[in-house]
């Protein structure tokens, strides 16, 4: 099947085609899932190089799981978010247990908007990432999945192995903590008058 024809296929159908040896499916899955895995890892870790490593490891696990994947057992995206999240939490635990890394600072992504908006966008992004980094791991995970990845609470519950109520509680506490952390920077970030 040609690559373009695969754009309308579900992740699960693409994974089945990948396991059957269709090269176009491999390319389509990388284009679809690569940025998602990387983006989530970046938001969790705030570090580009680490996010690349984590996303690569998660994708590698997906490719190896593909031949034994049973249709209807799990959603590919949920599975991938879960693996990325767990790998990120492992790294964050190691980080906290080890020496402080001076490079552990959020690196801006590759936005290309113009002038002032770009500067403010980067300032906001940096500030939010710093505030996210200060949250407890599970709160950060829930807030990122809910408010940055845009997932539903039941999806997040599946990823985090929690009940929906627990997810709602985690995101609520995370938002409250973020508001406190960013309270003094509203004017600087240009969102107090939004």
């Amino acid at each position: 099947m040609p690559y373009d024809a695969m754009n309308g296929e579900s992740d699960e159908a693409l994974l089945a085609a990948y396991a059957a040896g269709e090269q176009a499916a491999a390319r389509a899955l990388v284009q679809r899932l690569g940025p998602r895995a990387f983006g989530h890892a970046h938001r969790m870790l705030g570090d580009r190089a680490e996010a690349e490593d984590v996303a690569q490891e998660a994708l590698l696990r997906l490719w190896r799981a593909a031949p034994g994947w049973r249709e209807g057992e799990a959603k590919v995206s949920t599975w991938l978010y879960r693996v990325v999240s767990n790998l990120c939490i492992d790294r964050m635990r190691k980080r906290r247990g080890g020496a402080v890394d001076i490079d552990d600072v959020a690196e801006p992504a590759d936005p290309a908007p113009g002038a002032e908006a770009a500067l403010q966008g980067r300032a906001r992004e940096g500030a939010l990432q710093e505030a996210l980094d200060a949250l407890p791991m599970r709160q950060r995970q829930a807030v990122v999945l809910r408010h940055l990845e845009g997932l539903s609470n039941p999806e997040i519950a599946g990823i985090m192995d929690l009940g929906v109520r627990a997810v709602e509680s985690l995101t609520a506490r995370g938002r409250k903590a973020l508001e406190g952390l960013l309270a003094g920077r509203r004017a600087e970030l240009g969102y107090d008058d939004d």
Binding site: G34, P35, F38, G39, H42, R43, R48, A51, E52, A55, P108, A109, D110, P111, G121, R122, R124, E125, L128, H147, L148, G150, R175, L178, E179, L182, L189, Y191, D194
Partner: peptide, 18 residues
Amino acid sequence: EGTLASLFEAERQYAPVP
């Protein structure tokens, strides 16, 4: 999201890209 809505919205737009 309440008061954080615009901040989250901005972050969603500047999603990290590999």
